[in-house]
């Protein structure tokens, strides 16, 4: 602890900055961890439920159980769009018949939009992890270089270059690099991990959209 208190003002500022980076990145790591884990498990359960049930309105009534899954959002968006497409027909015509594929196109667009917004939601804050991972070693290095500069300045003033004089200043300076690495390593690891998890979720969303569209098209065409 004395090594931190003995450092110069610039080194202290650098350490403070790195500490705040570390706090924020760990907050994001925790937040993302729970978010992604819940999304994964609820998506799995939702897919089970989806294939077991026969009717969309039955699924729509139960959808609150899987609120954290991105697939639920896709289903909601797609279903509400589908209702908008089908209902005017039933009002005007009463037969609910739609032979052209304009309705399906609408649903497809709605699904794509929902997918994009879900990707945005999942990837939110992840850029901060990438930034922390790539910049905090440099920030730490800056602190170290500054600390060594001041240490050498002091040595030049006193004129003695024994190890007892040189060593503490350099040790104080090096702690900045150490803290920078401590902040960067978990951030990079978590960033890669979440990138992979989110890619898996995006794939799931894409395949769900295709399935949903297939079902819609089959039903509309069949009617």
């Amino acid at each position: 602890m004395a090594i931190i208190l003995g450092a110069g003002i610039i080194v202290k500022l650098v350490l403070l900055l790195l500490l705040s980076f570390s706090v924020v990145s760990w907050a994001i790591i925790l937040f993302k961890f729970f978010q992604v884990q819940r999304a994964n498990s609820e998506s799995e359960r939702f897919m089970d439920f989806f294939w077991k049930s026969k009717r969309f309105d039955a699924i729509a009534s139960q959808v609150d159980r899987f609120a954290n899954s991105p697939l639920t959002v896709l289903f909601n968006e797609g279903y509400s769009e589908l209702k908008k497409v089908v209902e005017p027909d039933s009002k005007s015509d009463g037969s609910a018949l739609s032979t052209d594929l304009g309705g399906v196109e609408n649903v497809s667009r709605a699904l794509r939009r929902a997918t994009n917004s879900e990707i945005t939601r999942l990837e939110k804050y992840l850029t901060f992890l990438a930034t922390t991972g790539s910049t905090s070693p440099f920030i730490g290095l800056f602190g170290t270089v500054w600390g060594i500069m001041t240490a050498f300045e002091g040595i030049g003033k006193t004129g003695s270059a024994s190890l007892a004089v040189v060593a503490p200043g350099i040790a104080e300076a090096l702690i900045a690099t150490a803290i920078g690495l401590v902040a960067a390593i978990p951030a990079v690891m978590a960033y890669n991990h979440f990138q992979h998890k989110i890619r898996v979720l995006i794939n799931e969303m894409d395949s769900f959209s295709t399935e949903f569209l297939n079902i819609v098209q089959r039903n509309i065409a069949g009617k």
Binding site: A27, I28, L30, F31, F34, Q35, R38, V63, D64, F66, A67, N68, T72, V73, N76, E77, S80, A114, S117, Y125
Partner: peptide, 15 residues
């Protein structure tokens, strides 16, 4: 986003 579902995400503040 017009989704009606209510999420139970852990807040960023808690994190």
């Amino acid at each position: 986003m017009s989704s009606q579902v209510s999420r139970t995400d852990t807040g960023v503040g808690v994190s």
